[in-house]
């Protein structure tokens, strides 16, 4: 690893859980900890896209792990599959601890604003300089996923009707993280330290990221809408302060509703891994019965927003 920006020999290599599309390892070198991620064969997107996005985000000062080396641009890759090595970031990722442990008492009141600021920084990335990113209309995308599931969910159809009838005015598209939420962030006693899991980064409406972090599933039982700990205004004000763009609460909630439908459809997909025999797992099977949580949230949101509009 010498010559790749990593000091000294590799020690105490340890496998971490890391998702379906990649292996994740942690190791020490010199006096520092690093994280290595290696793509599994057949992954939907080349990890080098993510490396380019991460490097751009870090250069703009967004809270991300710093990539110290990767196979991007290497003529011969010693690990076979695409990989990247990042400086490890100290802190906690487990949502329930962030929401409840005393260690994070000072972090919770500032987290929503820090998330808003970080999103604005990410949305400033020059996505035209990065190959391999794509974008599509999110309503059409999830209507298609609904059809592909082969299931009928009248509640989501009501949500799709509402989303189509109440589309906010379009915004210039930018690079959106795509999965910025509690569970995918590292938090320490002072708040947000790093945003992880950039696999779903794509081109889209900036409000998509803001809505996603408000979906009830990502509140993990917290009482407030933004990551369970913050109010809508804290997120929106911080986003405006950093970006200059004002997103209204109603626009935010349109995207929160879309995110709620999206997570419902992802629950269907996860249960399908079990039902189709890809992975036999009672945990995945049970997720199929979480779809109705999102149907409930979607209908409640529409009821609230319809009452507000009258």
């Amino acid at each position: 690893m010498r010559g790749a920006g990593i000091p000294g020999d590799v020690a105490s290599l340890e496998r971490l859980t890391g998702g379906a599309s990649r292996e994740t390892w942690r190791f020490a070198a010199g006096h520092e900890l690093f994280v290595l991620q290696r793509q599994r064969p057949g992954s939907p997107r080349d990890m080098h896209v993510e490396v380019a996005v991460l490097e751009a985000a870090h250069a703009l000062g967004a809270p991300t792990a710093q990539v110290v080396t990767s196979s991007r641009g290497m003529s011969t890759n010693p690990l076979g599959e695409p990989f990247m090595v990042m400086r490890a970031v100290a802190g906690e990722t487990i949502a329930r601890k962030i929401l409840r442990d005393g260690d994070f008492a000072d972090a919770r009141p500032v987290l929503a604003a820090q998330i808003g600021r970080a999103m604005a920084q990410i949305h400033r990335i020059d996505h035209t300089a990065i190959d391999g990113l794509d974008g599509e209309d999110q309503v059409a995308k999830y209507v298609q996923l609904m059809d592909e599931s082969g299931q009928a969910h009248p509640a989501f159809e009501i949500a799709f009707r509402w989303l189509e009838a109440n589309r906010p005015a379009p915004r210039d598209w930018c690079l959106v993280h795509g999965d910025f939420r509690l569970g995918n962030v590292i938090v320490d006693g002072d708040g947000l330290r790093a945003v992880l899991d950039w696999e779903l980064a794509h081109i889209g409406n900036p409000a998509e990221d803001l809505g996603w972090v408000c979906v009830r599933a990502w509140r993990f039982g917290g009482s407030k809408p933004v990551a369970g700990v913050g109010d809508y205004a804290a997120l929106l004000d911080a986003y405006e302060a950093e970006s200059g763009a004002r997103i209204s609460e109603r626009e935010l909630r349109w995207w929160e509703l879309l995110g709620t439908v999206k997570w419902g459809l992802m629950c269907i997909s996860q249960a399908a891994y079990h039902l189709n025999g890809v992975v036999r797992s009672h945990e995945l099977a049970a997720i199929g019965r979480r779809v109705c949580e999102n149907e409930y949230d979607a209908l409640m949101t529409i009821r609230e927003l319809s009452a507000d509009a009258q």
Partner: peptide, 21 residues
Amino acid sequence: SVGVVRVDVEAFVFDSVVDKL
């Protein structure tokens, strides 16, 4: 209506979702 759809349709779908939960 509630939102876009007829109030009786929305109420039936909502009650079904509550039953599921």
